[in-house]
Design a protein around this nucleic acid. Sequence first.
DNA 1: AGCATGTGCTTGGTATACTTAGCGCACACA
DNA 2: TGTGTGCGCTAAGTATACCAAGCACATGCT
Lengths: 123, 123
Amino acid sequence: MTDDDKTAASGAWRSLGDFIRGQRELANLSMRQLAEIAKISNPYLSQVERGLYKPSAEVLKSIANALQISAETMYSQAGLLDNTTTRENSHHGVEHAIKVDPRLSVDQKEALIRIYRSFVGGG
Amino acid sequence: MTDDDKTAASGAWRSLGDFIRGQRELANLSMRQLAEIAKISNPYLSQVERGLYKPSAEVLKSIANALQISAETMYSQAGLLDNTTTRENSHHGVEHAIKVDPRLSVDQKEALIRIYRSFVGGG
DNA sequence: AGCATGTGCTTGGTATACTTAGCGCACACA
DNA sequence: TGTGTGCGCTAAGTATACCAAGCACATGCT
């Protein structure tokens, strides 16, 4: 229920919750597991993921750390950083990161980029 | 768990207050003036500068903006960014870029990362 | 002297970030 | 057919970030 915005949760914070949930599932962690690592309670994590609360920067950093992603990315997702500094985080970043990875052969890079482009579509 | 920084003000937050006060005086602004621009109350700014409270990231960003310094610098001063590898992380950049790409679904991210790991040897 | 306007700070209250206890549901195993 | 353990979520309480009103001390003006 309560899908309407409750003045605490709207816009960027909702998408932040989705982002966190996605990262958590990507890491195959349950809410309790992530909450344990990030040292927050699992109900609170639940509310954050559903966009009901705006977590403090400390909590954000802790979650980012637990998910093994940079705090900067987290803040950027939360709209707390003017995106002037995070220019290479968008879709261009994946292709760029693939291109500059010294462990990949040219063929492997081409394969990954082709798959990536098929995922994100022609847009 | 570092049980000594559970309380409101300690360490980095105190120096953050000093930092803010320094920047404010450098800009020749009174507390009320800065509070007005940053859209916070002047008593609260007073407490923040004296290290009594830990301002939220939103407030921090607002103050940074009012002082015309980057939010990144502010967070760094507040100890909210690990300045270890904020930028130019070369080799685990691909996985990170995939993880944070908003265009990819969780399943697609898993697929790409799996392929990537098979390429680089799964270490 | 007195009043006006500036400064930073204290007090007391409200909003909200965050926690501990517990619910309902699914899937195991006996 | 229970009974136990996992999941995410709800409810109710505590802690704290934050605000509005006002104090105490300056400086300036008349």
